[in-house]
């Protein structure tokens, strides 16, 4: 097993590369997830705090416009 760990004497290089990869990939994932949580939490509070405005009856119903931009990625 230790033969494997020593990586033919280059353990420092190989393992630090994989370590760096883990740090970068997991780091980006965690940052993205926490960012998403934070924004969605503030969004929820804002949505809740949005003043409940009654819908004034519109004289001419606004033409229901089809979404102009095709949104498939």
């Amino acid at each position: 097993m230790d033969g494997f760990l020593s990586m033919g004497g280059y353990a420092a290089y190989v393992w630090s590369s994989y370590g760096a990869a883990a740090v970068v990939l997991v780091g980006l994932l965690v940052l993205s997830l926490t960012g998403l949580r934070r924004v969605e939490r503030t969004l929820a509070t804002l949505e809740a705090a949005k003043p409940r405005r009654k819908r004034e009856p519109k004289a001419a119903p606004a033409p229901t416009a089809t979404p102009a931009a095709e949104t498939t990625p």
Binding site: R53, R55, E56, K58, A62, T64
Partner: peptide, 8 residues
């Protein structure tokens, strides 16, 4: 703009 919530 009209502040209707649903499809507003």
């Amino acid at each position: 703009p009209v502040e209707d919530d649903q499809d507003g």
